[in-house]
Every structure is written in structure tokens, then in C-alpha cells.
Amino acid sequence: MLTEFTPISASVGGALIGIASAILLMVFGKVAGISGAVQSLLNPLQKGAGWKLVFVAGLLIAGVIVQLVQPELLVGELDLPLWLIVVAGLLVGVGTSLANGCTSGHGVCGMSRFSARSWVATITFMVIAFVTANAMYWLG
């Protein structure tokens, strides 16, 4: 499916992501890592899980707000057979858990900190995702 080039909404969204990460770091000294926050759902009573659960709740509330106010903004389908949806989800879960981070923690927060781990992680998952998406499109 074709999508439109939307540099302005992409920049506005990127700014909101940056501002949210900035507040978390400047005020609380914490890194906005979503895979880590999602992990806290598995261990909600663990020490240090509190703010992560609240952060997760905030992400869900954002979704609910948009669903109520402007539902056409929150669109999209997973264009995969069921078994591949399960496989892709498992890969994302295992992968981010092993790498201790995803697009937010390693990508946005870690790369801007010039963390070697985050650069290696982000370049690796970007290249693999690029190869995978192209293989699915051109060979699939």
C-alpha cells in the first residue's frame, strides 16, 4: 500500500517524542525506553516498575484520546498472516529484551547520547529491518 510523504506531521510527531524524552531525562533523570517500560507489565511489583507502568498508561491514554477525538489518525493494519504476526511479535519481544532496548531507548535516547551500544544496536536493527522488508516486498 502506498503512503503519502508527510514531512511536517513526521517532524511534529518527532518533536513530541523528543520533548517527552527530554522531560523524562531532565526532570527525573530517566531514559524513555518503551521496551523496558513494557517489560514492567510482566513484573509490576518489582522495584522501579512504578514509573514505567505510569508511562505505559500514558501511552495508552494518548491512544484513547485520539480514538475519541480524531480516530482517522490512528490507522493501520498488520498485513501478515496470523502465524507471521505471532512470529514477528515474538521476535520483537525476544529481540528488544536481549538487546535491552528498541527504537526509543537505543534509537532516540541512546544514539543522541553517542552510546556505542545504542549505535551498534540501532544500525543492526535498521539494516536487518531494511533487508527483511525488502525481501518480503521483492521476493514475497
Partner: peptide, 10 residues
């Protein structure tokens, strides 16, 4: 912060 981040993603 979570809400702002979520709105950014959307």
C-alpha cells in the same frame, strides 16, 4: 510524558 510520547507516535 507518556501521553505526549504516545501522541508523537500517532
Amino acid at each position: 510524558v507518556g501521553i505526549i510520547f504516545g501522541l508523537g507516535l500517532i
